[in-house]
Amino acid sequence: MVSLQDVYDDEDAGLDQASRLRTVQAALLPDGRAGTGWSAAHVARAAAGVSGDLAQCATAPDGRSLVVTVGDVMGKGVPAGLLAAHLLGALDALVRETPGVAVEGAEGAVRGRLERASAFATLFHARLRLADGALEFVDAGHGFAAIARTDGSTRRIPSADLPIGLQPRGFPRLPRHDALGPGDVLLVASDGILELPDADFETLTALARRLVDAPALDDTLRAFLDDVPAVVGDDLTVLAVRRDVDPATAAATTDPDGADR
């Protein structure tokens, strides 16, 4: 008789521990799918085989909104990766809740483990309403999100709260609001973006601006990652969401000769 141990034995399957960890972590990453009228893409590079970043982009159970998450657990490698998976799981369990409630609940679930591990995590957690682009989010010590608009303006979203594990008990998170119009882009990265050569916050906002006019988010983010050194000093994650332009709307606001009205 074949036992479950035989079926799930990684060694017999030819998988070493590091390979298995990377396989499992890959299953936790966004799949790149977004709701109708929206595009999403994601790239990442780990500094030590297993990343301490977490990322999610998925349609909420109600089918009316997109849940967008990027976080960064202090440290690198397997210890940070385990804590990142735990935090992402806690957020997944609260996927029906508003960002403020979800972040507060997830923090309560992971705070003890973070404290015992002498760690903390930064987190950007948002819901995008698919129908009109309304954005509600919490930024817990993260500060690496930006919105680029079709009018050429770009704004980085600064953090307004302390990281996960450091917020004093009894102090609620501060939900904030914005909106994405047709063609606008929400870009969220981990702080590994500042570890790139000659990088600063303009690196984040400049990439967001490029994505507004990019034919495909995937191609532009992969090209960005191709320019990143093969060995990085910190985990890097970049997640982009764009509200697609309705072709009928674009045609109605453009003259036949291509000049905007």
Rank of each mutant, 00 (worst) to 15 (best):
2 V>E: 08
4 L>M: 09
5 Q>K: 14
7 V>R: 15
8 Y>C: 05
10 D>I: 07
12 D>T: 11
15 L>V: 01
16 D>L: 06
17 Q>C: 11
17 Q>V: 14
22 R>V: 15
23 T>L: 15
23 T>Y: 12
25 Q>C: 07
25 Q>D: 11
29 L>C: 13
31 D>W: 04
34 A>I: 05
37 G>V: 03
37 G>N: 12
38 W>C: 13
40 A>E: 05
41 A>K: 13
42 H>F: 03
42 H>M: 12
45 R>M: 01
48 A>I: 12
49 G>A: 02
51 S>Y: 08
52 G>L: 02
53 D>L: 02
53 D>R: 00
56 Q>D: 15
56 Q>P: 14
57 C>Y: 06
57 C>A: 14
59 T>R: 14
59 T>P: 10
59 T>K: 12
59 T>V: 15
60 A>G: 12
61 P>G: 05
62 D>N: 08
63 G>D: 08
65 S>A: 14
68 V>H: 02
74 M>Q: 11
75 G>Q: 03
77 G>F: 07
78 V>K: 10
79 P>N: 06
86 H>I: 09
86 H>S: 14
95 V>N: 03
95 V>A: 11
96 R>H: 10
101 V>W: 00
103 V>N: 03
104 E>I: 00
105 G>M: 04
105 G>R: 01
107 E>K: 01
109 A>S: 08
109 A>M: 10
110 V>K: 11
112 G>L: 13
112 G>V: 07
113 R>L: 10
122 T>I: 06
123 L>M: 08
125 H>K: 12
136 E>C: 06
137 F>N: 00
137 F>W: 03
141 G>S: 13
144 F>D: 14
145 A>F: 00
146 A>E: 04
149 R>P: 01
151 D>M: 04
152 G>C: 05
153 S>F: 01
154 T>A: 03
155 R>L: 00
156 R>K: 08
156 R>I: 03
160 A>E: 08
161 D>T: 00
163 P>C: 10
164 I>C: 07
165 G>H: 06
166 L>F: 07
167 Q>I: 02
174 L>S: 13
179 A>G: 07
183 G>I: 06
184 D>C: 08
185 V>W: 06
185 V>G: 12
186 L>F: 03
192 G>H: 02
195 E>W: 02
197 P>E: 05
198 D>W: 08
202 E>G: 00
204 L>V: 00
205 T>F: 04
205 T>Q: 05
208 A>I: 01
209 R>D: 15
210 R>A: 12
214 A>M: 03
217 L>D: 04
217 L>M: 07
219 D>H: 12
220 T>I: 09
221 L>P: 02
222 R>T: 15
222 R>I: 13
224 F>C: 13
225 L>Y: 03
227 D>Q: 09
227 D>H: 10
227 D>L: 00
227 D>Y: 01
231 V>H: 12
236 L>V: 09
237 T>P: 05
237 T>M: 00
240 A>S: 07
240 A>P: 01
241 V>M: 08
245 V>Y: 10
249 T>K: 14
249 T>W: 15
253 T>V: 15
255 D>P: 10
255 D>S: 15
255 D>K: 11
256 P>F: 15
260 D>W: 12
